[in-house]
Amino acid sequence: MFEILAAASGAAAEAPPAWINWLPIIGMILIFWFLIIRPQMKRTKEHQQKVAGLKKGDQVITQGGLVGKITKVDDTYAEVELAQGVRVKAVKHTIGDVIPKGGSAAND
C-alpha cells in the first residue's frame, strides 16, 4: 500500500523544466530593454547628432535654460552669445537643443 502511494506522489511532484524558472527574469529584462534602455539610447544618439551639427548662427538652448546664438564652434566648446556683447563659452555637450529656423528669436 505504501508503495502505491509513494509511486503516485512521485509522479505528481515532478518539477517543471529548469528553463521555465528563467522565463520571468527574461521577460523583465525584455521589458526594461524596450521601455527604458532602448528609448534612452535613441535620445542620446539624437543629442549627439545635434551637437555634432552645431554651426555658427544656430540658435540654441543650453541645459541650464539659457537661450542664445552660436558665434563660434570648435571640437569641444561653443561660444554662445546670450545678449548683445555678452558671450559665454560652453561645453558643446551642455547644449540642450537647437531652435529651428523661424522659432522665437534670441538677441533681437
Rank of each mutant, 00 (worst) to 15 (best):
V67Y: 09
R87K: 15
A13V: 09
Y77C: 07
W19M: 07
K55G: 10
I20E: 14
W33P: 02
D74I: 04
T76G: 07
S104V: 15
P39A: 01
Q40I: 00
D74R: 06
D108V: 13
P17W: 02
G57Y: 07
M1D: 14
V86Q: 15
I61N: 13
P24I: 03
V80M: 15
G53D: 09
K89A: 04
I26F: 09
I26H: 05
D75K: 08
I61E: 13
Q63T: 08
A78I: 00
G68N: 12
V51H: 01
V86A: 12
P24L: 01
I95T: 11
K50G: 01
T94G: 10
A83G: 11
G10E: 06
K69Y: 01
K92L: 04
D108L: 12
E14Y: 06
V86T: 06
K45P: 00
G96F: 02
A11C: 03
A52S: 14
I70H: 13
I36T: 08
V73Q: 10
I99N: 14
F34M: 05
L35Q: 12
P17G: 09
P39V: 07
A52Y: 00
V86I: 00
I26E: 08
A15G: 00
L5Q: 11
A90C: 08
Q49N: 14
T94F: 12
W22Y: 09
K72H: 12
G103R: 05
I99P: 06
P16R: 02
D58F: 01
K92C: 07
I95D: 07
P39I: 05
K50W: 05
P100C: 00
I20G: 03
A13E: 01
Q63E: 15
E3K: 00
L82K: 05
V60D: 10
V98W: 03
A7D: 12
V91A: 13
